[in-house]
Design a protein around this nucleic acid. Structure first.
Lengths: 224, 224
DNA sequence: ATAACACTTACAGTTGTTGTAAGGATGCAC
DNA sequence: GTGCATCCTTACAACAACTGTAAGTGTTAT
């Protein structure tokens, strides 16, 4: 059954949420300390997160945003304040649904089920900006267009996406692609870079891979 | 820009909705007659549908369900009655979001944007029961497992899915796969059926392709 | 101007996919 | 249960796609 993580500081509400999901047969865990919530959540590798926005310390909004940039599971945001601006802000940050407390358990479950239904389809998709990469098939989606990359090209793009917006050194790429750079022609990376750029070009993606001379490669998302 | 279709019988409300979306730059159309709403909507090939549940004639719930089984665009359900049971029912039928009228335009837009954001990722996915097929790459997803089919295998599964739950004749398969059955060995279809079954078997999908002796093949979804 | 670094094109080995062939299994009619 | 029609399975070779190698061209910093 699906794994849900509850991020809520109020003990009473937290237990209530956990119980609601447990009764439906979900595997539930929750955050106890709020020192490193992001790490704790990611380590848990959940299928869905229920996130209270009004957290101690760093804002829940910030947490939502950071999680969204690093994982593909859906986030259901809860709040006690029933304000439209909170909802708009949360949805804008990438939250997948927004409910106000108190919330009827049936509604919570129904919304959760809906999110999980969709999650099966988008799992293993990396997204940064408008660019989406299916890491199972290396299908790239970009503004209603798509192209399927070959294995090597796809792996390169995956690594660049996972490290975005950092620069990835050639050595790192060699390590991940060929397990070191001792016995492989150094040129092979450049060849595959050319191929990748050409493949992306066929659906109109241009100048996304920037060469940082002497340091490696880096993705550059155009702000269109 | 994305294409949105509005299905609402009240003229005044319809215009309001259309305007809200137009102002944001969406391409909007709406249903005028309610004789054949399903056909009209599908012909329009929208990226999202906004559906009033309280329609004349056939219930909006029924329409929602039928659309969901035949298309992959998201459906945002609107209603005047603020009852939990309507919401649960709509979400259960596959609706992607549920809002009560009157609804603040900003909220409507935010929810719409969220749905469209996800839609980019799930476009070109066929789903029947627990089985999901990406028709671009022929990746099959089934209960947290996945496998990538070869071209021919994928095309066969796609055809069977599109015709589900009907039986597809061998002749139809030949037509779609090889453009007729004159110059091709009749055996090739059986060979590829074996291959497809074997591929699906690797992720635990068994007995999904039923042979209808003398008539063709048919998908059978297990009720698990 | 030069050397280091990056890019591009062409080619051949390898891998995966596809259709062909041949034989085996299964179901139906009598 | 015998025989025939239908369907299934395995092995193989032709073909296409992908990958790494080689060689030469372009670009940048000093």
């Amino acid at each position: 059954m699906s794994k849900i993580i509850v991020i809520e500081d109020d003990v009473y509400l937290r237990e209530e949420l956990v119980n609601t999901f447990m009764k439906k047969g979900y595997s539930v865990s929750s955050i106890s300390s709020f020192n490193e919530p992001e790490k704790e959540i990611l380590d848990n590798n959940p299928d869905l997160a229920v996130l209270d926005i009004n957290l101690p310390g760093k804002s829940g909004f910030e947490l939502c945003k950071r999680l969204k940039s690093r994982a593909s599971f859906p986030i259901l945001v809860l709040t006690a304040r029933d304000t439209l601006s909170d909802e708009l802000y949360a949805l804008g940050l990438g939250a997948d649904d927004f409910l106000t407390k108190p919330c009827h358990p049936d509604r919570l479950i129904a919304r959760t089920q809906r999110l999980l239904r969709t999650y099966v389809k988008v799992r293993n998709l990396l997204q940064t900006g408008d660019l989406i990469l299916d890491i199972d098939t290396y299908k790239v989606i970009w503004k209603n267009a798509h192209v399927v990359l070959s294995d090597t090209e796809g792996k390169i793009l995956q690594i660049l996406l996972e490290r975005y917006p950092s620069v990835v050194s050639k050595q790192d790429l060699f390590l991940k692609l060929w397990g070191g750079n001792e016995y492989v022609d150094e040129n092979i990376l450049q060849v595959n870079m050319t191929r990748l750029r050409k493949s992306l070009d066929t659906i109109g993606i241009r100048n996304i891979i920037q060469t940082e001379r002497g340091r490696g490669y880096r993705l550059e998302m155009s702000k269109s």
